[in-house]
Nucleic acid binder design. Structure first.
Length: 476
RNA sequence: CGGGGUGUAGCGUAGCCUGGUUAAUCGCGCCUGGUUUGGGACCAGGAGAUCAUAAGUUCAAAUCUUAUCACCCCGACCA
């Protein structure tokens, strides 16, 4: 899918639109509904894992950032900074009233570690207060130079989970738990295959000891998309904000933290991964509409069938919509709903009335089924929804595999990337300078370090011996 | 911030080089009426644009000149 097709698809399916500010988009009902489904699913997973939702403020004072700089050398980039509070009129034009300059600048959150950890100090006194497992669904702003619908917006919606623990061991265990949580939603619900691993030092979140990431590639282009990240904060933020607790021995000791997130970028990933010539193919479990019912003629018998079907679908928790606008021809409707990626079309016309059936067409294969209308019809429908869910995951996974290559030398790497974009596995002797050189030469970056083997191998770039295996990819 | 490009109706565009009954073409979409309706229907009619903004050249500017602004693509930044 080229960029134009991607943008066209988002616009024609009413998922999102541009706003009048560069890099900031409007998420329309159909798109928001996808996000909302992701949210509902992940919220359940969070609750199961004992997380509590809460909300921290949008604006953060500068003095907190100053603290982080002092201790961890974090320099915030790409922030929106609020400096004034008032306008005045000059020559019939609105201008910022310089007299209204704020004593201290406020920063719109690019992420919330700052405001959360500075608050935790007051919430955590004893080992009995730990662990603290919190999550918030919110928007953040990171002013980027270059933008792309959902993949890189200046404002995006996300979930940020934060956990604070009494020991290093417990914090690391929590990271394992979060990995499972993300694996579950990405694979079982969004049907997105992925690779996982640690970010290089250069790409690690500022203030984190390590960053663990989930990466995938797009259908045609084979470009990399980062789906989720988990940061192990160690006791770094505990040091900055002096978040300490009294342990069972009566000693005051530091806390250990993690933070992690998934964002509306996932919508972009879904679009880029699940599509064909006819448009989107949404995974049934997050599709805003799972079934579109299309009566072909305006007829009382059909109306009766629809009422009957409605009842059954509602009882089986299948989301559906009925399009009984007869001013639009069937062909046009078929194209429209195919484009929107609705998993199943149910068609009812004269033939169906005669045979007491409905015609079912699944979006992924366009296979047709004729189902008898009776109380058990939902069983077959659920089966097909499930089958679509599984099939699109398997297909995406196969595709990712065929787009994953192994290279031994930089020379063969260069040769191959000219032909195929994708994931490139190789051995790597850690060196930030070389990392940058590779990026400049090829536009490829190290997506993640996937494992450390026992055997030593030659680094594909420096020829030094190493046991580190990495995946390279071309990012959006 | 560097290099390139584009601004004409809700969207996509023609016209610009060579200024003149062109206050603007065509397609999609929208509205009204009718005939249609099993994979993007057709006919008839209709609404909708101070041609990005500002200044200049000229008898005359969408068209030429200058400035400004916005957006897009390619780099640096990046969940």
């Amino acid at each position: 899918m080229d960029d134009k097709r991607y943008i066209d698809l988002i616009k024609s399916t009413n998922i999102a639109d541009y706003s009048d500010i560069k890099g900031i988009i409007i998420i329309k009902p159909y798109g928001y509904s996808i996000w909302n489904n992701i949210k509902i699913i992940f919220d359940k997973i969070l609750i199961k894992n004992k997380y509590n939702n809460l909300y921290f403020p949008l604006l953060i004072s500068k003095k907190l950032f100053q603290l982080e700089y002092k201790t961890l050398n974090i320099i915030p980039k790409e922030c929106a900074i609020v400096t004034h509070s008032r306008f005045k009129i000059n020559n019939n034009k609105l201008i910022v009233d310089k007299k209204s300059k704020l004593n201290e600048e406020l920063i719109i959150r690019p992420t919330s570690e700052t405001v959360i950890w500075s608050t935790l100090k007051r919430w955590i006194q004893s080992y009995r207060d730990l662990p603290k497992l919190i999550n918030q669904w919110c928007n953040v702003i990171r002013l980027e130079m270059r933008n792309k619908f959902f993949i890189r917006n200046s404002e995006f919606l996300w979930q940020e989970g934060h956990s604070i623990h009494s020991s290093k061991k417990e914090a690391l265990l929590e990271i394992k738990k979060v990995k499972k949580m993300y694996k579950k939603i990405l694979k079982n619900y969004l049907c997105i295959p992925f690779i996982t691993g640690y970010k290089t030092f250069k790409e690690t979140f500022l203030g984190a000891k390590f960053t663990y990431s989930f990466e995938t590639i797009t259908k045609e282009k084979g470009k990399s998309i980062q789906l989720a990240t988990i940061h192990y904060l160690s006791n770094n933020f505990s040091k900055v904000y002096n978040v300490k607790y009294t342990n069972i021995m009566g000693k005051r000791v530091c806390t250990w933290g993690t933070s992690w997130g998934i964002s509306t970028r996932l919508i972009g990933a879904i679009i880029m991964i699940h599509n064909d010539k006819k448009g989107l193919i949404l995974p049934p479990k997050i599709a805003p509409i799972q079934i579109i019912i299309l009566p072909l003629i305006d007829n009382y018998k059909i109306k009766r069938i629809i009422i009957y079907l409605k009842d059954i679908l509602k009882k089986s928790n299948i989301t559906f919509e009925i399009d009984d606008n007869f001013n639009i021809t069937p062909g046009k409707k078929f194209y429209k709903y195919d484009n929107m990626g609705i998993p199943i079309k149910l068609i009812i016309g004269i033939n169906e009335i005669r045979n007491n059936t409905v015609e079912l067409i699944r979006r992924d294969t366009f296979q047709k089924y004729y189902l008898y209308i009776n109380n058990n019809i939902y069983i077959k429908i659920l089966k097909i929804l499930n089958s679509i869910q599984k099939r699109i995951y398997i297909f995406a996974k196969k595709r990712m595999r065929t787009k994953t290559y192994f290279v031994k030398s930089f020379k063969s790497f260069i040769k191959k990337i000219n032909r195929n974009c994708g994931f490139y596995a190789t051995y790597w002797y850690s060196n930030s300078k070389n990392e940058l050189t590779i990026q400049k030469l090829t536009q490829y970056t190290i997506r993640c370090i996937i494992k450390k083997s026992n055997k030593k191998h030659k680094c594909f770039f420096s020829n030094k011996y190493t046991n580190t295996k990495i995946i390279l990819g071309k990012s959006y």
